[in-house]
Nucleic acid binder design. Structure first.
Lengths: 227, 227, 227, 227
DNA sequence: CATGAATGAGTCTTCATTCAT
DNA sequence: GATGAATGAAGACTCATTCAT
């Protein structure tokens, strides 16, 4: 009775993996537990051994996704050798990386059908990620590099706005539109923090390394339509 | 003769009214057509005489809500006697008014359960309201009062961010938290447009006239729990 | 009170016309009275002024269709100047003509979805057309040109068999298959009546004048799929 | 382990049994899944555990019925020791036996209301049974006992015609009428194959052993009316 | 730990028919 | 004669969840 066997944990992860995949493809509401367990290849009852409700799967999934981001960030934030700007740049880079990778076919968390999951992630972003960012912003204010009266709330607004707007599961953007939105994001971040224009243009720089298939909503849509 | 009787139009509006109310209380998914028509006090078939699907009701509702806002704005925007700042102030004031009135009990469009409607409204906001704002912003840029390289995209981000963050159906905020978020919104708007600090503080001023029951998420929640 | 106005009869015929058209395209079950009256361009209530039930329309339609064939035949049958072979040839020719015209796009009575109507026509065929044919066959037996012990029953079987088999609404035949089935029909008719081989080959001769679009099930199917 | 439990298979068969019974009594369209499952004595959901749609039940039923006939026939057909006439006689006898047994109360597949099932069986007959018959006919042609230019098509027509005409679910025949139609069938089969008159009179011979309750439509009708 | 059969309330939707105006 | 709004029973189908084995 060590609590959970290895096999047991794997089983649970397998269910989560399959659930996430199906939620992305068909949406949460449209995915039945039957669908999940058939894909997993186990009996329906197994599901209820690992989870209590279908909703719990969604919660777990969202939490896992958020934690992945959070975990990476806290390390940076707690590093005493970095100044605010350095930390922020690292964090934004990281988030952007995760964000775009999410648009990738095999991990496309933001399908348009998937309103439920989407909203929960947005909420988690605001509630869990924004405070981390605001901590760094506060540090920057103290260091004299950033300037804002409402660090937390500004982070919340910017994070919510930027994420919603650049979600290729919601908006079917062309590459050009997408780039423009990212550049506007840079502009807003710079202005919100009161830093020099162009300081955060590394985001749009990163886009250049991003393959089309991740950034072009049409390509993504067509991919899913094929399935 | 005119195609639709007065009585008929009223009936349709009555259904819409009831539907909106129930969607707010129970959420879209959780509201059945049965629920709606029982409340209306008519046979289920009547629903399908006026609408083709449950989804159509949602669409109509969202459209009506957005149009209400749009209609008010276009008049202001097309007024040649106003400068960009004047227009923007008017529009923000108006939007804020509609927005908070929406939080009112009898017209509480943004219940947390109501993910579907919520998301559609957010999308409509970005797609329909942002372009109107950006038009005014462009005017301001020409007039030399505003400064931004991406008028449309900046409007999109700010609108999305501010709306999401200040939605009392999603976040259960205390009065203080709410005020802070509104103030941060002001800060961001000012910075995004490159205007002087404090130029748009009329928003938080308006809050002072807003009764608690609309602004305090706890009060709202308790109200619904009573039902 | 002359019973029925001219306008009234026209109205009724219009409804029947539209009903037949829609039954052919969508099938009887799938066509609602709403569909019919919307196409007619009159209020739903009008329908019930002219018919008592939806079923009555089907009955009327089948009867009209059968009567059209019957009327043409009785004239020939009662003509004392013709011998049995002459009569039969004429009748077959006529029936074949009506039959193929039915496969035509605008009068395609035998859509595959239209099981109900189809069966009723088959039954009517056996009950109303077979007796007429058998009368002629009996004449032929007396004249010594035909030979069979069960004139009525043989007519019933042949009519049922030939019609079912050559119904392009049921079977999706290629032109070749269709021709073969018609030729086999000739063979059976000749044998059943005990006449010389080739005596009734005029049926397949008639095919040569029939355009593909009527005879090729694929063309017909594609036509309907476009709608 | 084997995929399906014994009990599970039984359940499925039970549903099929009940469905067939109800379809016969009330017709396919008029039988609801509720009806079926209430009779089975299980929850509605059980139905959908075993079948995907109501239509699938019909398909399964038709297939089962046809296969029963086909299975018996292929054995005879593939027997190299029998000549065509022997095979044909055996097959006809067999089919007649199944056909009349179907008219029996407990297995009355052809109720007049049951247009859908009826048509599907007719189509299956033509598509699955006719080819088997035609194979034997071809053998007979080679052996010099039969004579026809279109073996397959002739089989199709005769099968369709004879079945339709002798279906007591469609036509309410008296015993005399029924016998006449069977005798006419014999005549047509003999003529179609070009064999000596009287060669296939064993069919009407078989009738003599058939009890009235199966052959007399009135008796059958009365039986159902009692229910 | 696993199975998979069973549950049954609940969903949206359809439509022939009626009837007051 | 005509209108078209209203009826409401009935239909097929879904699915999260339970539980005996």
């Amino acid at each position: 009775m060590t609590g959970k066997t290895n096999k047991s944990i794997e089983r649970k992860q397998e269910i989560l993996r399959v659930a996430q995949k199906l939620f992305n493809i068909k949406g949460f509401q449209e995915t039945s537990i039957n669908d999940i367990m058939k894909t997993v290849g186990a009996a329906k009852g197994v599901f209820y051994y690992y989870f209590e409700t279908k909703d719990q799967v969604l919660d777990t999934l969202v939490e896992q996704n958020i934690n992945e981001i959070v975990d990476g960030m806290v390390q940076v934030v707690s590093n005493p050798d970095l100044n605010a700007t350095q930390k922020l740049k690292y964090m934004l880079r990281e988030e952007f990386r995760v964000s775009t990778s999410r648009n990738d076919f095999n991990n496309h968390l933001h399908n348009i059908k998937n309103v439920d999951m989407h909203q929960r992630i947005m909420v988690s972003m605001v509630e869990k990620i924004a405070p981390i960012f605001s901590q760094v912003v506060k540090q920057g204010v103290l260091e004299g590099t950033f300037k804002t009266e409402y660090p937390l709330e500004v982070c919340e607004i910017v994070i919510a706005g930027v994420h919603f707007i650049s979600d290729l599961g919601i908006f079917h953007l062309s590459r050009e539109q997408y780039i423009k939105r990212i550049k506007a994001s840079e502009e807003i971040i710079e202005k919100a923090l009161g830093v020099e224009e162009g300081s955060f243009n590394f985001l749009s720089e990163m886009l250049k390394e991003t393959p089309d298939r991740i950034m072009d909503a049409k390509a993504i849509k067509e991919h899913y339509d094929e399935i």
